[in-house]
């Protein structure tokens, strides 16, 4: 079975979170599953579309599902949770509303892709690659305490996404455990980082991310693992500013779960994109032996 790959704008080459995309691809080459980029995919519309125009938001997302179905993918991987959440919600909306479905089909000039399964990155790893990880693991990071940060979009709305426990998710923790690091129990796993307000209301983002960083630090985290480019951007790129504003020292590397898997598989840190982070990731890289 081949899995369609929908990277989304934020993690493509040259974008803010390209290292997420790079590490996802690299890891997949080692432990599978095989993924293929959906030809000519387009933006899902993200928060800007759903915040202002429901029909547009639905059409922009469903276009990609329809493309995936045209290319006969039964399942697609959307590592960016903003994308996976929008794709899943939009698919459900057209499934539930015939009028909307007809309008969307008129706009995208294709039948709606109502059958293709959309999976986030944690789901893909859990469903296809856990055994592979166990077999191919080369290094472990014993004693590296990792705060798994899921954010909003992986788990909410739970009734639609049907993924993990929205108040205390465990999927990423299980993966971290499988690659020989130590997931910690902490209180801010699904708190909001301010997401899309990074440009328009940076003040809000700074406050929310400070809460998260403080929570992780108090719980003794050496690093925060994420699976979302927006969470990453807010926690990593803004960490200096947060430290300045709140007069605190965090210095907590923010790493993608795919990067952590890559390190455990013995892949090179630079190749995984760990040099692209704002907060130095050396301590994490060095923890792998």
């Amino acid at each position: 079975m081949k899995i369609g790959y929908y990277p989304g704008c934020a993690i493509t080459k040259g974008a803010t979170s390209e290292e997420y995309g790079t590490s996802v691809m690299k890891v997949s080459e080692v432990i599978g599953p095989k993924i293929e980029e959906i030809p000519d995919w387009s933006c899902c519309g993200a928060s800007s579309a759903h915040a202002t125009n429901h029909k547009l938001s639905t059409a922009l997302s469903v276009r990609n599902l329809s493309l995936a179905e045209q290319h006969e993918y039964e399942e697609i991987l959307a590592p960016c949770p903003m994308c996976s959440q929008r794709l899943i919600i939009s698919q459900k909306d057209v499934q539930d509303d015939d009028v909307l479905k007809r309008e969307v089909e008129d706009a995208i000039e294709m039948p709606c892709g109502t059958n293709v399964k959309v999976s986030n990155y944690l789901e893909i790893i859990k469903n296809y690659s856990m055994d592979e990880i166990k077999q191919k693991i080369k290094k472990t990071a014993k004693g590296l305490k990792v705060a798994c940060y899921y954010g909003c979009l992986l788990v909410r709305p739970p009734k639609v996404l049907k993924f993990d426990d929205p108040e205390d998710p465990q999927s990423m923790d299980e993966i971290v455990r499988a690659i020989g690091a130590e997931p910690i129990d902490w209180e801010f796993k699904t708190n909001c980082c301010g997401g899309g307000f990074t440009l328009s209301r940076p003040d809000v983002v700074v406050k929310l991310t400070n809460d998260i960083l403080e929570g992780a630090q108090e719980a003794g985290a050496h690093a925060i693992a994420v699976a979302c480019p927006m969470c990453h951007a807010n926690l990593d790129m803004r960490q200096k500013k947060i430290e300045k504003e709140y007069k605190r020292k965090y210095d907590i590397p923010i790493v993608y779960i795919s990067e952590l898997i890559g390190l455990a598989l013995g892949l090179g840190a630079i190749g995984l994109g760990l040099d692209k982070h704002f907060v130095d990731t050396k301590s994490v890289v060095d923890a792998y032996t």
């Binding site: 974008a15 000519d40 933006c43 519309g45 800007s48 202002t52 899309g196 328009s200």
Partner: peptide, 19 residues
Amino acid sequence: NITSFHESFLNSVKKHGRI
């Protein structure tokens, strides 16, 4: 700020298909 951001974002999508 927020509404302008949404507008700019969608304009970019409209123009290029991606951000």
